[in-house]
Design a protein around this nucleic acid. Structure first.
Length: 364
DNA sequence: AAAACGGGGGT
DNA sequence: ACCCCAGTTTT
């Protein structure tokens, strides 16, 4: 057999790209998983799935997705959801702020687009919570628009295929990735192409132990040829974390414990947490009462330590010390009694960790 | 227990 | 170009 590789430089880019997408599509047609959001072309459902998938593994999204779209089948239905309903609908997925942004987006769809997700890439990008990635994903998967989606998976696949040594977080690296993604996009099946790239990154071209022997793109992968796959993509080193020693009080009342609904503007707004100065505020034990009073409008005295839990958010490493507490003011201010085990109360993750740790030490 | 991972918004 | 938001899974 003679090589089919062309020597001509007439249309080298096109030739290479066609082969790229053919190999990718052939692989995807065989390897694609049957997922609920791949059985619909409804742009709202696809939008929802993309937002969920940004933060959670496929398996966790499976159940949540079907429950969510059954409960909120249209942007309009979700636009009208209350904060509490939103929390419940998003339960188990974390990153509640994204659910709020999704609702903001749904509200704009209702207000500016008569409730229909706009079939236009620029209009999509104007929606709250829809950035470059989500815009590309929805536009290509729901509407067949020819826009390459670049998420972390795609970034990794391309950086390796190109042997791109630039920092992918810096402007030069971003431009290179973007250009490579656009160049390789399959114009006949843009939605499938984007999904295939992401699936390849998630299942074959994985961060730690890539299965290059199973990769449809290995033949012309320059990173593999140069033996630098594991070093890519290059990113700038993360910033050193800030250490926080936060404190909360466990004040038993009316069969539950006192809790604060986190005010708008603070992290985790709308969720419930144990009273204290806040999850990102370091305080000594003797400062607790004063700092808590200003935020919770209630006087709380703290006693013995019941539990310590650790939690990490962004560049904060938080140690939360949970004290037994007692209410000293006449009324509870902004605090309400809530049941720790009530599945309908959207406790913060830190609060749940505290309850779990207390439960463990009890059963010892 | 530490490390790894990621997309959107705001300044 | 920078910082902030916010968790789960893997090692």
């Amino acid at each position: 057999m003679t090589s089919k590789r062309r020597k001509s430089t007439l249309k080298p880019a096109l030739d290479t790209d066609t082969a790229f997408s053919q190999r990718l599509m052939h692989w995807f047609d065989r390897a694609r998983r049957d997922l609920p959001w791949r059985r619909t072309r409804d742009p709202w459902a696809i939008w929802v799935s993309e937002v969920m998938l940004q933060q959670t593994r496929v398996e966790a999204v499976r159940a949540a997705f079907e429950r969510f779209v059954a409960r909120y089948p249209t942007p309009e239905s979700f636009a009208n959801a209350s904060d509490d309903a939103l929390m419940l609908a998003w339960k188990g997925l974390g990153y509640y702020r994204r659910a709020r942004l999704l609702r903001d987006g749904a509200r704009v769809v209702v207000r500016d687009h008569r409730g229909a997700v706009p079939q236009d890439a620029d209009k999509l990008a104007e929606l709250p919570g829809v950035g470059a990635y989500t815009r590309a994903a929805v536009a290509s998967i729901a509407f067949d628009l020819r826009i390459a989606a670049v998420d972390g998976n795609v970034e990794r696949v391309l950086a390796r295929h190109l042997a791109l040594r630039d920092d992918v977080d810096a402007a030069v690296g971003k431009r290179a990735i973007r250009a490579a993604a656009d160049e390789r996009l399959d114009h006949d099946r843009p939605g499938d192409h984007n999904q295939a790239m992401m699936e390849l990154g998630a299942t074959v071209c994985t961060p730690q132990s890539p299965r290059c022997d199973q990769c449809p793109l290995a033949a012309d992968c320059r990173g593999l040829a140069q033996g630098i796959v594991m070093t890519l993509p290059r990113k700038k080193p993360p910033r050193a974390p800030t250490l926080v020693k936060a404190r909360v009080a466990v004040v038993r009342q009316a069969g539950g414990v006192l809790a604060l609904r986190i005010p708008d503007g603070e992290p985790n707004a709308g969720q419930w947490e144990l009273p204290g100065p806040g999850a990102l505020v370091s305080v000594e034990e003797n400062e607790f009462s004063a700092r808590t009073r200003s935020r919770c409008r209630a006087g709380i005295e703290v006693g013995p330590v019941l539990a310590e839990v650790r939690h990490a958010i962004t560049h904060h490493k938080i140690t939360v010390v949970a004290h037994a507490g007692a209410l000293r003011s006449r009324n509870a201010g902004s605090l309400r009694a809530q049941e720790p085990t009530d599945p309908d109360v959207p406790w913060t993750t830190i609060s749940r960790k505290v309850f779990a740790a207390m439960h463990e030490s009890e059963s010892d």
